[in-house]
Write a protein that binds this DNA or RNA. Structure first.
Lengths: 338, 338
DNA sequence: CAACTTTCTGGGAGCGCTCTCTTGACGCCT
DNA sequence: AGGCGTCAAGAGAGCGCTCCCAGAAAGTTG
């Protein structure tokens, strides 16, 4: 261990400023009950000594850690693919946390072991709250933490039986899909299929539900293939759809990545987009503007989701009561594929 | 704050097991000097009480925090684009950290204010070490931290004058580019251009240097346009290259994202790839297999870079001396674009 | 069998901070 | 002028843990 010069403590600052430890503490923590000249002296001493509070010592007495955990279940296919979900959330969280001067502890929880690790860490109160990005299946961990009184927020409506309500922030999947399908109908498409996402993720489930709802209302037949949000699965699903109904003239794909795969399959099958087949994606990732043709898609505000989750969590950690769900709007972005 | 049932302390475990606090501490920290039956009793008490050590209290006395910071300079264009650099590094870091049972504190440092925040946080010894992902320009922060005796590792060779050596892990940009350019020459390309990356990032600089070196050796003329690693800039740069030399028959693009933009421009300009113009990228991101045509590119082991950085950092934090540079190999991946 | 090691466990100090409680100084009212 | 209220600053008690040191118990040797 490299030995840097001894770090100054509150005590040292107090001595230097000729006041007591308590007073320095008051100034450092922004109490207003300290006379201005003394505040000034303390601040100068802090400056001169390069004092930085020891967070461990502070946590020990305040029982707060001023840091929160963001858990990314690695099993979620999307998390490490390039759909930017994960960076988007992180960025939003980070912005909001920085504004609140809190730290972000990132935990990737793939294995059962790391799952247990997250639980230990959180129940051990090493963080003031936990956020789950992209909950896969019916993960019991969020509910477990809620039950032990730890502030928790999930991205995406948690699945499974609700033994205890877990607060969440989600986007309006159903509304977004409705806009997409309606657009296809309005532009004269008759045989509309969908490539759904995995049915153990709320994004997959809701987007398929939205598609079904909208199509049922129009009285048309629906054709469904299921992918797992990856390009590859999108390509495969498109192949299957084409085999099932060579005459389909539109497809709503539950993610841009899958849409990318689907576009490729369509090209290989000699279909022109959008002339022969219209394609609408979901997510509006950066790449959507660069596919051939550029992808019409449903935009979801991922970064804003991260911010909103954080705001909710911080409020819970501060002891406020919050509503248990926030749903952010989605929007149809028209490009050339439909 | 929700009041969960009181967390048990060492003291409580000690009482329950009928031993002293010191003994419990020994067992918890894996000391071997405790008689087996007592160890057993302590472990049972820990289990029964659900004891989890208070990290703040431990840090206070050990002067370690068992967490390390990963700093992502947000200004780096690449970091939040979809080239997966950032998630790749995080994943690698996270794996290695989990194995060592340490925490990852993620800090996004865009503004000057957040820069100062990182410095305060690190010099305040709130983490045992700091890793910088993708250092942009000649950021003085890494060197500053090194000087105050904090373990630091950078991803990518730091730029600027070396007042103090900052350890780093990088990939072999030059070697990778050499392979790419050599491949173009060997497949009979005569007029080879390049789209370089930003010249304030080592990845941009080295990849251009590699291109120049290799082409100089072959005695050919070189044509250069500069982008900033985004798709958009790649498209623009390609346009410019085409204007400068309509007869060029190959282009080495310093990133896959820019290559994606370039492919689009080439298509719009009526050039066939690879028949008229061969294109080679750099990075080998997931998307490279889905461009039209699939992109020949230079693969760099991003995740491994994150792991290696972490290993180095942990060794430094443990007081070991490490060599100050590690360079990981790159590899040419042949697909259809060249 | 006494004297001395060698193990193993407990006692207790202290890491740096916050926060309650107390003291002290001052101004104001009667 | 004396008593009171008010407000600012200091004293001191821990927060939960590690680790040094002392001391007890057990084992070893001449």
């Amino acid at each position: 261990m490299t030995t840097a010069r001894e770090r100054p403590t509150l005590e040292a600052v107090a001595r230097r400023a000729g006041v007591s430890r308590a007073t320095v503490s008051r100034v450092v923590n922004g109490s207003t009950t300290v006379a201005e000249p003394i505040q000034e002296a303390v601040r100068r001493a802090v400056q001169e000594l390069g004092y930085v509070p020891n967070l461990a010592a502070r946590s020990l007495v305040t029982q707060r850690t001023d840091s929160i955990a963001l858990v990314l279940p690695e099993t979620a296919t999307r998390v490490f693919s390039d759909d930017q979900f994960f960076p988007g959330i992180i960025r939003g969280v980070s912005q909001e946390l920085e504004a609140a001067d809190k730290q972000l502890v990132l935990m990737i929880a793939g294995s059962a072991a790391s799952h247990a690790r997250v639980e230990r860490y959180a129940t051990g109160r090493h963080v003031d709250g936990v956020m789950f990005a992209s909950v896969h299946g019916a993960d019991p961990l969020p509910a477990t933490l809620v039950r032990s009184g730890i502030p928790v927020v999930c991205s995406g409506r948690p699945m499974g039986q609700v033994t205890v309500p877990v607060p969440y922030v989600d986007v309006d999947h159903i509304g977004g899909v409705a806009k997409a399908v309606r657009h296809l109908l309005e532009t004269g498409r008759r045989r509309i299929a969908t490539i759904a996402g995995p049915q153990d993720m709320i994004a997959g489930i809701d987007r398929l539900a939205g598609y079904r709802d909208e199509l049922r209302d129009s009285g048309r037949r629906s054709l469904i293939a299921v992918g797992d949000f990856t390009r590859e699965s999108g390509g495969l699903a498109m192949r299957q759809l084409l085999d099932d109904d060579p005459d389909l003239d539109a497809v709503f794909v539950a993610s841009d990545l899958m849409a990318h795969g689907a576009l490729r399959t369509l090209r290989e099958a000699g279909r022109r987009v959008p002339e022969d087949v219209a394609v609408v994606g979901f997510d509006d990732i950066e790449m959507a503007r660069y596919t051939d043709p550029p992808l019409t898609t449903v935009r979801q505000p991922i970064q804003e989701m991260g911010r909103e989750m954080t705001r909710q969590l911080l409020r819970m950690a501060a002891g406020e009561d919050i509503g248990h769900a926030v749903v952010l709007p989605t929007e149809l972005v028209l490009r050339e594929s439909a």
